[in-house]
Computed example of a mutant assay.
Amino acid sequence: MNRILILEDEPALNEMMCDFLEGEGYKVTSCASYDEAVGLASKGFDLFIFDVKIIGGNGFELLRELRESGIKTPCIFTTSLNTTDDVQKGFSSGCDDYLKKPFELRELLVRVQNVLRRVFGGSLIKLNNELSFDALQKRVLRGNEPIDITKKECDLLALFVANSGKTVTRDEIYTHLWGYDEPSEMSLRVYIRKLRILLGNERIISHSKVGYEFVPFE
C-alpha cells in the first residue's frame, strides 16, 4: 500500500482528497500547515501532494527545503496559481507534476498513478529469476505470493529500485528510513546483509564512505 502525505489547508477539500484516495487503496496522512508537513515529510511516504498557498509558508519553498535536506519523495502540487511563471516555480522547486485548481478527483488519481509508475519504472519489477518487486504495493513476490521481509528492508529496497544503477548515499538512506530520528548504521548493515542474502551479493555494491549502488536484474 503506497503512503501519501497531503498538505491542504482547506478542510473540506482535504477531507475529500483523503477519503477518495483511501477508497482507491492508498494509505493517506494529511496536514494543513508548513510546520506540520516538515515534521511528517521524512516518515517514509511514497508521494507528496502539496497545496502551494499554505498556513505558515509556501509550498514551493517547503519542497525546496525538503529536497535540500535529501528527501526525494515525488511531489504533486495542487494550486489555484496558474500562470506560466507559477508552473515554472513549481517544477524548479523539484515537483513531479502540477495540478491546477479546481480539479476533478479522478484527474488527481490519474496524476498519482502516473507519477508512481514513472518513479518506480512500472508496477512489477523483476529482481531475479524467482523474485519480483511490486513497487506500487511495496512488497516482494515469489511468483504471486508475497515473502516476509521487514518494512524498513522493503523501504530500502524501494529506494534502491527507484535509483537503480545510481549510488544512493548513506545520508539519503538515513533520511529515507529514519527521517529526523537517530539513524542506526548497525541496523542499516543488517538490512543490506539480508537484502544481499535475498538477491545476491553482487546486486548491492558498496561504495566506501559514500553509499550503495543497486544493480538492476537483466
Results as ranks from 00 to 15, higher is better:
Asn58Met: 10
Leu195Val: 09
Glu107Tyr: 09
Leu131Gly: 09
Leu63Gly: 11
Asp96Glu: 12
Arg203Glu: 00
Glu107Lys: 10
Lys53Asp: 10
Glu36Phe: 09
Ala158Met: 01
Ser92Trp: 09
Asp19Gln: 01
Tyr191Leu: 11
His176Ile: 00
Ala162Trp: 03
Leu156Pro: 04
Gly57Met: 12
Glu10Arg: 06
Arg118Pro: 12
Val215Phe: 00
Gly179Val: 08
Asn129Met: 08
Gly179Ser: 04
Ile204Trp: 03
Met1Val: 11
Leu116Arg: 14
Gly121Ala: 12
Asp171Thr: 10
Pro216Tyr: 09
Thr73Leu: 13
Val28Ala: 03
Gly39Lys: 12
Gly59Tyr: 04
Met1His: 07
Ser42Thr: 05
Glu172Gln: 13
Tyr26Met: 04
Cys154Ile: 14
Asp134Gln: 13
Thr29Trp: 03
Leu47Gly: 03
Gly122Pro: 15
Asn128Val: 02
Leu62Ser: 10
Phe160Asp: 02
Asp86Met: 01
Leu136Gly: 07
Asp181Ser: 02
Ile147Ser: 10
Ser33Tyr: 06
Lys151His: 12
Asp19Lys: 00
Thr84Arg: 15
Tyr98Arg: 06
His176Trp: 01
Phe160Val: 00
Leu188Ala: 11
Phe20Leu: 02
Phe214Thr: 01
Tyr180Val: 13
Thr167Met: 10
Gln113Glu: 14
Ala162Val: 07
Leu157Ile: 02
Val161Asp: 10
Glu218Asn: 14
Ser92Tyr: 06
Pro183Glu: 12
Asp134Cys: 13
Asn114Tyr: 11
Met17Pro: 02
Gly179Gln: 02
Ile55His: 14
Leu105Pro: 03
Val38Glu: 15
Thr169Met: 07
Tyr174Asn: 14
Leu124Trp: 15
Trp178Leu: 02
Ser164Asp: 05
Asp9Thr: 09
Arg117Leu: 15
Cys75His: 11
Glu213Phe: 00
Ile54Cys: 06
Leu7Trp: 02
Glu145Trp: 07
Gly23His: 07
Leu157Phe: 05
Leu21Cys: 01
Asn58Pro: 11
Ile192Leu: 08
Lys53Arg: 13
Phe60Met: 01
Leu40Glu: 13
Ala37Leu: 08
Gly57Val: 06
Gly25Val: 06
Leu99Ile: 05
Phe120Ala: 12
Thr84Asn: 06
Asn163Tyr: 05
Ile173Phe: 00
Asn82Asp: 11
Leu136Phe: 10
Glu24Phe: 02
Ala41Trp: 06
Arg67Lys: 15
Ser69Pro: 08
Thr84Gly: 01
Met16Glu: 09
Gln113Tyr: 13
Ile173Asp: 01
Glu218Tyr: 15
Leu109Thr: 06
Tyr174Val: 07
Lys100Glu: 12
Asp35Cys: 13
Val52Ala: 00
Gly165Thr: 09
Gly143Met: 09
Asp35Pro: 08
Pro146Cys: 04
Thr73Tyr: 10
Ile54Glu: 14
Lys151Cys: 02
Thr29Cys: 08
Thr84Pro: 05
Ala158Tyr: 05
Phe48Leu: 11
Met1Gln: 13
Arg196Lys: 15
Val110Asn: 13
Arg111Ile: 03
Tyr98Ile: 06
Tyr98Lys: 05
Gly25Ala: 09
Leu13Ala: 08
Leu156Trp: 00
Leu62Arg: 12
